[in-house]
Design a protein around this nucleic acid. Structure first.
Lengths: 201, 201
DNA sequence: CGATAAGCGGACCGCGCGGTCAACTTGTTA
DNA sequence: TAACAAGTTGACCGCGCGGTCCGCTTATCG
């Protein structure tokens, strides 16, 4: 993963604990948001608090590790869809996968956030490239309107989850409804001129 | 505003401080998010910390007061648009006003959040009714697709702000681009069937 | 103007957090 | 299996937060 060439192999139990910790933290963050305490995460993982800080010098580093994992999963999925025949369907499927990762508001936001250490930025850049590829191919295929850029798609990626998170006892698939609406907005049919130029990242 | 019939009039300076406090808190929350400290808010307003708690027994009460204000502003704007001739344009304008309120992620989220005290819920319900009215009229007018409900519009209301908040040095009007895209997704032309039924609140 | 109570301020409190450390346990390796 | 480094642990620390409280100030009104 994010191992600079210092590559000293982890002891077996340490590797297991690291994985337990990442999983526990992801769960805890999903339940209580980013203000979940490190102590709770440690308890959930069944390890001592000190162990957390041995693996991740800072709570932020722990969050960053989770974010990087998520980003990389998504990038892999995106890259595999780059050679699909129907570029429009591929983009829609990618966005469906992105929404399917049961995400928490804050975590999703951080995936795209700009203030990050270089290694997270690198992961973001990789994901962005994949999304850009999918978007461009879909546009060339006529499945997406001309005036929409890869950056637009990248930014809109998490919107369906945001929207559906307002609803208290919603179906866990409600986000698909809003993905469908937004995706219809990306289609060429019935598109109206956009009032603002596309941003760059 | 939210004055139950206990209606004892506020002393002049107290009323002024209350207003200063609300403004300072809104600014501070916009800059630093909801974790802005009460002490900082008091300093910004030029009052002592105790004064904050005299007006708002709890930090949450302060947040609630701001949320209620925002909701009511928006409701008023929405209600005035209910008699517009072009219902489609009215809905779009309403959504433009909603986006134009310089909002912060957390605050926008709380405007729609379900866990609130009764008085905030009441304000939310009022806003919802206005949005519902605008949406229904736009649908009858043929400006919005048949399968979209008032609830959908209510939920999508803040999405453009969320989306554009990812961009570091964005134009402050970037959200308009995403409002346009999403609004195109609400139009009847080129609409595809939605995969999930509409939610209820 | 003078009395009164509404309003103000900021030192103070306890709590829970992120982070440290030194004594202890355990996987690893020859 | 012995010896050592890698890993673990939880008591501990300091800080900054939300919230309290009481002595002081000041708007209000007869």
């Amino acid at each position: 993963m994010t191992t600079p060439p210092d590559a000293r192999p982890l002891r077996a139990d340490a590797a297991r604990n690291r994985a337990l910790l990442l999983a526990a933290a992801a769960d805890e963050f999903a339940e209580h948001g980013l203000e979940a305490s490190v102590a709770d995460i440690a308890r959930r993982a069944g390890v001592g608090k000190g162990t957390v800080f041995r693996h991740f010098p800072t709570k932020d580093d722990l969050i960053a590790a989770i974010v990087v994992d998520r980003i990389n999963d998504l990038r892999t999925a995106g890259e595999q869809l780059l050679d699909a025949e129907d570029a429009g369907a591929a983009l829609l499927e990618f966005l469906t996968i992105a929404g399917g990762q049961r995400q928490q508001r804050d975590l999703s936001f951080l995936m795209g956030s700009a203030e990050w250490k270089p290694d997270v930025k690198r992961a973001q850049a990789g994901l962005f490239q994949a999304v850009e590829g999918l978007a461009v191919r879909a546009r060339e295929h006529g499945a997406v309107r001309e005036d929409v850029t890869g950056t637009d798609v990248f930014l809109l990626m998490c919107a369906p989850n945001y929207v559906s998170e307002y609803v208290p006892n919603a179906s866990p698939d409600l986000w698909q409804r809003y993905l469908a609406i937004i995706f219809d907005g990306l289609r060429p049919e019935g598109a109206h001129a956009l009032p603002q130029p596309p941003p760059t990242l």
